[in-house]
Design a protein around this nucleic acid. Structure first.
Length: 721
DNA sequence: ATAAAGTGACTTTTT
DNA sequence: GTCACTTTAT
């Protein structure tokens, strides 16, 4: 079979597996995307399954698009009818079709994270709750977590007083969304699961339709996703899932790698296939990856191997501060591009938090090196972009309270917070959405409610209402880009942005970029444009065909690969992140995140950290990441000259100190010793063990309590033996 | 009602 | 240090 050429036996076994439940446990770089793609092609081509009866779920739209193109190439014809997309996009589409069974209509809008927090904040204000005690983002986090676990407001577990308050806010929150004719990200999954559970007819309709279901990145599904998959697979039971528990990095979003175990239990007859051979990285990189991930508990040990050969050691570099680190990255990349045949696009720089990208960007800019930054927030989070999207959303769905609140006074048109609050209160009393009331007021003298406002407010309102009404008629005939043009003209937005500054110019350019995006939706229409804009993933913003280094978070790096990978900021508190310190489960996830980063590298891996780093404006001494201790010496090259030069500068530049002391395999510290640490001061040694030619100590400090310390890195002084 | 100036919270990670 | 939100002056 032409289709199976070049596959190894396990991959082949997966592609041609008998219908029924299949679980593919795929290590990094083991060709799982290929398996998934070939499997779809095989089902269509060899088993004659019509694409209409297939559903494939991926993690990003980009992955879906690539898969679609590859399948089309393999089967040599159109894949029309194939359901292929992210969980959210797929659910959004089905929910529009089934809207009659939902509390919203098919023109619902999708609330993003920002909108969600705004709704919560408004409710907290309305209920006179203390915003400090009930922080909107944290309350929203609780609501989101509940939804991912399929708890409706009435099911919200109340064990504390706080939970009682949150449950009340949750209830209000859902009401607000419904009157806004909106769904949030979590609702897309939640309502889909509810629909399938509560309406046997709908369940049967889709379960019968999807003869085969394929799921990528299965380890990152949450309870809602797992449940709806189970419903969808309830008729044919042909569910093919691919995942790797070691790469589960979205626990904080409700993802639960235990779904892999759940799957094995719920589908006990599942065929389990292991893909261990790696086609991406050198053995050295794989050995580093395994050495790091082995420290996690509760995992199935895996042996990653490759036929690619050993490859060079990985490089570990300590820099003075984050500026020097950024400079080092840029210099190294520039040098390699100049001296080897590496292309700029072969390089990626990864970091734990978005804030770390700024210094890197600056270094790239000042070196005059182009770069690509992955991150949707960067563009869609901009004020001017959000403003225009809010106008379009309001035009698509005038009930959208959040969008109306955003734009009713932007640009200023005489409707301030007071007037808006009045409008909102009256609308609530009349059981209308604010937008609907605004349209009612647009009738001018005929409106019975207009006299309730001051003459000034009434005048402003009766000017804006008709404008909205006009746009609403225009949307029926105009494509998205022309609606947008009309809005920009009517509100004189360019003039509003233009304050003569460089920033104002930039903002207008962003609006024009959005316009360019909208212009691609001539045939697909406003609904599709708004939906795509709401559901873009960070990876989707990665520009293809631009040959430049990529800057991205470790999360965004999942599923990608690069010949040269730099992971920066390997400082304790950054990677692993401080916020995870107290929670062992979160710490395991930090480790998986690092593992994901390492395994993105094909040929060369560079790790680096800064001796001093900025925290809230001032410099603080940073500790190298504890993960270094897990990387065997023989796999790393710490750039230390073979012979130590004794120069004065070295004495005054402690950051040049070698990563390891002179090689001693004997413990220098014993339990019971009192030591002194440069940052944590006095402490008592509890235990000491030799690990990878380094001494690892457990020390109880008076200041911070129990810490794991690597002797060669910590600069300890013995006070009292 | 709006713009300017001042205050305080805050930084994981994202569909 | 920065952003978003609140208070104060026009």
């Amino acid at each position: 079979m032409e289709l199976l050429k070049g596959l190894n036996p396990q991959q082949k076994q997966a592609v041609i597996a008998e219908p029924g439940p299949v679980l593919v446990l795929a290590g990094p770089g083991s060709g799982k995307t290929r398996v998934l793609t070939q499997r779809v092609a095989y089902l269509i081509d060899q088993l004659g399954v019509h694409p209409y009866h297939l559903m494939a779920v991926t993690f990003t739209n980009k992955a879906a698009r690539e898969m679609g193109e590859r399948v089309a190439g393999l089967v040599g014809r159109q894949t029309r009818g194939l359901t292929l997309g992210t969980f959210h996009a797929t659910c959004a589409r089905i929910l529009r079709v089934e809207a009659e069974h939902l509390p919203v209509n098919s023109n619902y809008v999708i609330f993003d994270a920002d909108d969600q927090v705004k709704v919560v904040r408004q409710i907290i204000k309305d209920q006179n709750l203390d915003e400090k005690r009930y922080r909107p983002s944290s309350v929203h986090g609780s609501i989101s977590a509940a939804k991912n676990e399929l708890y409706l407001p009435e099911d919200f577990p109340i064990d504390t007083y706080r939970a009682e308050v949150v449950a009340r806010i949750y209830e209000e929150y859902q009401k607000t969304l419904i009157t806004s004719n909106a769904m949030d990200f979590d609702d897309l999954l939640l309502w889909m699961a509810i629909l399938l559970a509560d309406y046997p007819a709908i369940r049967e309709k889709y379960a019968r339709r999807f003869e085969h279901i394929l799921v990528d990145e299965f380890q990152d599904t949450n309870m809602a996703q797992y449940t709806l998959l189970k419903h969808l697979a309830s008729y044919h039971r042909n569910i093919f899932v691919v995942g790797d528990a070691d790469q589960s990095i979205y626990r904080w979003r409700g993802a639960d790698y235990r779904n892999v175990m759940r799957f094995r239990k719920d589908f006990s007859d599942a065929e389990v296939i292991l893909l261990e051979q790696n086609y991406r990285s050198t053995q050295t990189i794989l050995d580093v990856a395994m050495a790091v991930i082995e420290h996690n508990t509760n995992r199935t040990p895996k042996r990653l191997f490759t036929k690619r050969g050993t490859g060079p050691k990985i490089i570990i570099k300590e820099l003075f501060d984050e500026h020097e680190q950024a400079q080092y990255v840029v210099d190294t990349i520039a040098l390699r591009i100049a001296s080897t045949k590496a292309n700029p696009g072969d390089f990626a720089v990864m970091y734990r938090i978005n804030a770390q990208s700024r210094l890197l960007e600056e270094a790239f800019l000042s070196a005059n090196l182009p770069y690509k930054l992955v991150g949707a927030q960067r563009f869609y989070g901009r004020r001017e972009v959000k403003d225009i999207i809010a106008y379009l959303r309001l035009i698509f769905n005038p009930d959208d309270a959040i969008s109306l609140a955003r734009i009713i006074g932007t640009p200023p048109r005489g409707i301030g917070t007071k007037t808006y609050a009045q409008l909102r209160a009256l609308a609530q009393r009349l059981n209308l959405s604010s937008g609907a009331l605004l349209l009612e007021l647009a009738k001018g003298k005929e409106s019975e409610h207009l006299p309730q406002f001051s003459s000034r407010a009434a005048k402003a309102l009766s000017r804006f209402g008709p404008l909205l009404a006009k746009w609403l008629t225009e949307k029926e005939t105009l494509p998205p880009v022309e609606i947008m043009d009309q809005v920009l003209e009517d509100i004189d937005y360019q003039d509003y942005l233009d304050d003569g500054s460089e920033e104002g110019k930039e903002r207008w350019e962003n609006v024009m970029e959005l316009r360019r995006l909208a212009s691609e939706y001539h045939t697909m229409g406003l609904q599709q444009f708004l939906e795509d804009v709401a559901l873009v993933s960070d990876q989707d913003t990665l520009k293809e065909g631009v040959d430049a280094p990529t800057l991205l978070t470790l999360h965004a790096a999942k599923g990608l690969e690069f010949p040269h990978v730099f992971i920066v900021g390997l400082n304790d508190g950054v990677l692993p992140h401080q916020r995870s310190f107290e929670d062992p489960e979160a710490m395991e996830e930090e480790r998986r995140l690092f593992y994901v980063g390492i395994t993105r590298a094909k040929d060369r891996l560079h790790l680096s950290h800064a001796m001093y780093r900025f925290v809230y404006g001032h410099t603080e001494q940073g500790e190298p990441s504890r993960y270094y201790a897990d990387i065997p010496r023989e796999l790393r090259d710490d750039g230390r000259p073979k012979r130590q030069k004794q120069s004065k500068s070295e004495i005054f530049r402690p950051w040049n100190r070698p990563l390891a002391p002179s090689k001693t395999l004997e413990a220098q510290y014993k339990p019971g010793m009192t030591i002194s640490h440069p940052k944590w001061d006095k402490g008592l040694v509890i235990s000491s063990k030799i690990q990878d030619e380094d001494e690892v100590l457990d020390i109880v400090f008076d200041s911070v309590g129990l810490k794991k310390v690597i002797a060669s890195l910590a600069n300890l002084e013995i006070c009292d033996a």
